[in-house]
Structures are given as structure tokens and as C-alpha cells.
Design a protein around this nucleic acid. Structure first.
Lengths: 150, 150
DNA sequence: TGACAATAGTCGTTTAGACAACTATAATCG
DNA sequence: CGATTATAGTTGTCTAAACGACTATTGTCA
């Protein structure tokens, strides 16, 4: 009896789903913002990473390692960005296997234009949360990341 | 002076990135498990939703609403699953606009086979976290979801 | 009732993601 | 040195995602 009420899902399962849903919700709002600037979120990510890397640029695989979600086809992702002149690529002389990517001034300009809207989006997304809760959330997520494989 | 140290990113920005990275990490482990059973995570999601819906099935758009990340092309997602006989589809007589999907016994069998491995994956993913921390994390994520747009 | 709007799903097309096989270069070590 | 292995990136191919336009059916209300 009481056969109609399901047992509650285990805490880990609930958290798994909640984490993915929250991430999807936040990300899709971010995606919209990127898209309105003609970028995918992967492209935006690459630009931010390259801005952070400075004028020395970064080899392709180093970009991949720093991305939020690793792109399995960095070559063609960068192809598209190079075609739009958001980045440049140059094969290294010292080690001719590596190709270093750098952000162009046009890429920097685009990023700069997006900085404020993105900052404000993130503020809005967490606006309802006290900064203590926010800090706790960040700590727990960091803890989670620390134990993730590689 | 001290011009080489960047100011720390605002808490919201850090949390945004940490949330997306954590979700990506957990999800990609999940994806591997799905894939080893011949499913994408979207397909797995649909199967779980349809199992939860019971023998009455669900209209396509209701499936979309319940998914972790809404698929913009439910038709062809279900096409592929119907072709593999994991689900059936049937147009309703009462309202001939709606098509109801139901899980087949083969779909149920596949899900059942995956239940334990998935349960164990989730347990492993959160193994390092005390159940108090886990509960806190779930609460914070739920709070976040509650304030997300629709 | 009959035009208009809303809802549910489908289909065409372009583009990007996933995976594996491949090329080129460099490092290692007997 | 020369064979082997490791690293870095590229390319081919297949499938799926994204986006919009489209069809069919039902609801609304003047």
C-alpha cells in the first residue's frame, strides 16, 4: 500500500541532476549573449583564454586544457576564428610541431565590448543569493572539481 | 607596481565558471557510461522520463520540458529511438495534433541494466563529500534553479 | 460561423561536434 | 646513429545540433 508514492531519489542522483540543470540554465543564458555578438560559447572561451595568455599566445592544446568543456576539434574551431580575424596562428620555428594562437586587436575589441554585459549577466544570475551562500557554493564546486579525474 | 598580478575575478564570475566546469566534468563521465550502452545522454534522459511517466506515455513537448537540457529537435531524437525500438509513438485521436511517446519493454530492459552502474557512478562522483556538504550543495543548486527564468 | 491565432509536431538546410586515421616533427634510448 | 615512441596538429567522414520555415489541427471570439 502507498504503492503510488515513489521513494525519493538518492541525494547524489538529485544533486547530479540539479547541477546539470543549473549549469544548463546559466550556460544557455550565456550562449544567447555570445550569440548576439556572433560567437559561440566555445569561441568566446578561446578568446578569453587568449586574452589571458597575453601577446605570447598559446599552443592549441594548451587552449583546450583551459577550456570549460574541451573541444575535440580545436583545429577547425580555430580555423573559423582565424577566418574571422579574431585570432592569428603561427607555426613555431623552435618546435615545428606546435602552432601558437594569438588574439588579434579585433578579437580584443569584441571581448571588451562583451565584458560589461557578461559581468552583469553573472551578477543577475546570482543576484538572489547572499554572498555567503555564493562563497559556499563556489567552495563546494571547487571541492568537486578537485576530485574529478585529471 | 605589482602590475603583474591580476585582480581576482568577481565571485559571480568564478562561480559561473566553476559550476559549468563541474557540470561538464560530471556529465562527460556520465556520457561515457551512456555511450558504452549505445545511448547519448539525451536519449537516456528521454528513456528515464518515459519510464517515470508510466504506460500512458507523454506528448513530445512534455518530454522536452522535463529534460535536463532541452533538445531543439525532439522529432528526430525520437525518430532515432523509435527506429531502435526503445520507444513507440502514436498520434492521439482526441487531439490529433499531439503524438504520445511510450517506452517499450526493450527500452525498460536497457534502462534497468544501466540503473546500478549509474547509481554507482554518482556515488563515486560525490564520494569525497560529506552528506552535510552534499545536502548544502543540493539546496544551493535548487535555490539557483528556482530563480532561473521559466 | 468564419477568420485569425495558438499549439503540436515535422522537415530542409546549414553548420558544428565526434571519432578515427593520418602527417609531420621531436625526443628517447639501445 | 637509427629505430621506436611520443607529441602536436590536421583531415575525412558520419552523425547530430541549430535554426527556421512549414503543415496540420484545434481554440477563440467578433
Amino acid at each position: 500500500m502507498n504503492s503510488r508514492t515513489k521513494p525519493p531519489a538518492p541525494l547524489e542522483d538529485q544533486t547530479f541532476v540539479a547541477l546539470l540543470k543549473a549549469a544548463d540554465s546559466l550556460a544557455s543564458q550565456g550562449d544567447q549573449l555570445m550569440k548576439s555578438n556572433g560567437l559561440t560559447s566555445a569561441q568566446y572561451n578561446v578568446l578569453r583564454i587568449l586574452r589571458g595568455a597575453g601577446p605570447d599566445g598559446l599552443p592549441c592544446n594548451a587552449i583546450g586544457e583551459r577550456m570549460i568543456s574541451r573541444d575535440p576539434d580545436m583545429t577547425r574551431l580555430l580555423d573559423r576564428m582565424e577566418k574571422r580575424e579574431l585570432i592569428t596562428r603561427e607555426r613555431q620555428q623552435q618546435d615545428r610541431r606546435v602552432v601558437k594562437a594569438r588574439i588579434t586587436s579585433e578579437g580584443l575589441k569584441l571581448l571588451k565590448k562583451m565584458d560589461t554585459p557578461i559581468r552583469e549577466l553573472h551578477k543577475r544570475q546570482f543576484a538572489h543569493m547572499s554572498s555567503a551562500h555564493l562563497k559556499t557554493l563556489l567552495d563546494l564546486l571547487t571541492e568537486l572539481a578537485a576530485h574529478a579525474p585529471e
